[in-house]
Design a protein around this nucleic acid. Structure first.
Length: 462
DNA sequence: AGCACA
């Protein structure tokens, strides 16, 4: 019904409030960054960030209404939009007059944690992965997982409330390391509270529940991975069926990744037919279509976990798409169809039979970061298409023990509790040291908005 | 890019 009183306010008729509503924040935005953005305009008395389905909204409450007004009016007339990590932030008055923070109300510490694993489906995170992550804090007695409206959840029973709270404090708001997750999962944040339970009643060992105190508990036959379950590898990761189309998610995207950049990178393995870029979960993803599965598999194998840019920037995570033929605009800033263009567009050499790219840079340049650090203004191109330096050795050992490489975690006694809400801090160093991808001579973002950090502007993540 | 569910 069309009520006149309870009607949501129209965009341009919002009454000022000392609470501001900020949208389009990066999902990993911290309270500090929020305060940094807002404090020039007045005293901030309260914040609430990572709000909304995508965790990309926030609220900021000023001490005084005029301070909120000054921020809104400043950015209303500013030529530079409000930004956090390069993303334009949209600011408006909240339709509420104060931030309601119910921080852990009635949340009594117990020995059982209720963990909501956000952004994943039940099949994405195995119970073994959950066990691995939480075992770092003490003996995990029992785990029960289930799906609710809130998403995929798990009850995790520890010996006592002290252990449980240690796990909660360390892991709440953080993310399960990527290497423990299927490649298509962009982010996976843990929201942890205490359960009212003290002892879980686990009936069967199954893919949904586990009792580690009772090895004699029967295995539920109906709960064993059956025909409807996705193919699961030995490491418990879901395996997508192979495809000629790769899904790339790009982590730590400090520089603009354009269609052209992706084309350069992925063409090293064969003719790229189509590319489409889109936003998902606040991050960037792209679909890259090859003519065949084999080429896609080679590209996936070679590029997975590698970074487009030196220094851990624009790290690629690849999985097989369900698509086989993309329907994209022939030429836009977010997509390209190379199959219908003029002859000669497929100028990049086909991949050799060995599968190794033929356009790679000599290894000496692998650690040459000039393309980035001098702002892309380097006089000599870092990469020359005519220079056919192939160094397979570089690619034969892209992984280093302990790196986030997907196979080594089982051996590692210490889980990477760099499990940061943003980028695993240890990850950057590993990449820099060993997991680098050759710089394909890409000039970042064609010198557009996303200029690389200059000397006076250090990268954010170090 | 569009208002918080603990």
């Amino acid at each position: 019904m069309s009520s006149s009183s309870g009607q949501p306010q129209f965009r341009y008729t919002q009454t000022p409030s000392k609470v501001l509503h900020l949208r389009n924040l990066p999902w990993e935005c911290t309270e500090e960054e929020l305060v940094e953005l807002c404090k020039p305009f007045g005293k901030i008395v309260n914040t609430k960030c990572n709000v909304g389905a995508n965790r990309n909204q926030a609220f900021v409450e000023y001490a005084d209404l005029n301070q909120a007004i000054s921020m809104v009016s400043y950015y209303a007339s500013s030529s530079e939009p409000a930004q956090v990590r390069g993303k334009t932030v949209y600011i408006q008055y909240s339709n509420r007059q104060e931030i309601v923070n119910n921080k852990s109300t009635g949340d009594v510490a117990g020995n059982v944690l209720l963990v909501t694993i956000e952004g994943v489906e039940a099949g994405d995170v195995s119970i073994d992965v959950i066990h691995l992550v939480f075992s770092a804090f003490g003996f995990v007695h029992k785990i029960a997982t289930f799906e609710k409206a809130a998403g995929f959840q798990a009850l995790i029973q520890f010996t006592d409330a002290e252990t449980a709270s240690a796990a909660r404090n360390a892991l709440d708001g953080r993310s399960i390391p990527r290497y423990l997750l299927p490649e298509h999962v962009a982010s996976c944040h843990l929201r942890i509270s205490y359960s009212a339970h003290t002892d879980l009643n686990i009936k069967f060992q199954s893919h949904r529940s586990r009792d580690y105190t009772n090895p004699y508990l029967p295995v539920n036959p109906s709960a064993i991975e059956g025909t409807l379950q996705p193919t699961v590898g030995a490491d418990g990761k879901k395996k997508e069926p192979e495809s000629n189309v790769l899904l790339a998610s790009i982590e730590n995207m400090q520089y603009a990744v354009t269609v052209d950049v992706l084309h350069t990178v992925f063409s090293a393995f064969g003719a790229v037919q189509k590319i489409a870029i889109f936003e998902k979960n606040g991050g960037m993803q792209a679909l890259i279509q090859y003519p065949d599965v084999t080429t896609a598999a080679v590209a996936k194998e070679a590029l997975e976990g590698h970074c487009i840019y030196d220094g851990g920037y624009c790290k690629l995570h690849l999985s097989y798409s369900r698509h086989t033929d993309l329907n994209v605009k022939a030429h836009s800033d977010k997509s390209r169809d190379y199959t219908i263009s003029d002859a000669g567009i497929l100028s990049v050499p086909q991949s050799s039979a060995s599968g190794w790219p033929s356009v790679l840079q000599p290894a000496s340049a692998v650690y040459n970061s000039s393309a980035i650090s001098d702002g892309g203004l380097s006089a000599q191109p870092v990469w020359d298409a005519n220079q056919q330096g192939i160094r397979p050795g570089v690619y034969n050992h892209p992984q280093v023990p302990g790196a986030y490489s997907g196979q080594t975690y089982g051996a590692s006694a210490v889980p990477p509790y760099s499990l940061s809400g943003t980028i695993p801090s240890s990850s950057a160093g590993l990449i820099q040291a060993s997991q680098q991808m050759p710089p394909y001579g890409i000039q970042p973002g064609a010198r557009q908005a996303a200029a690389p950090p200059s000397a006076g502007q250090p990268p954010l993540y170090f």
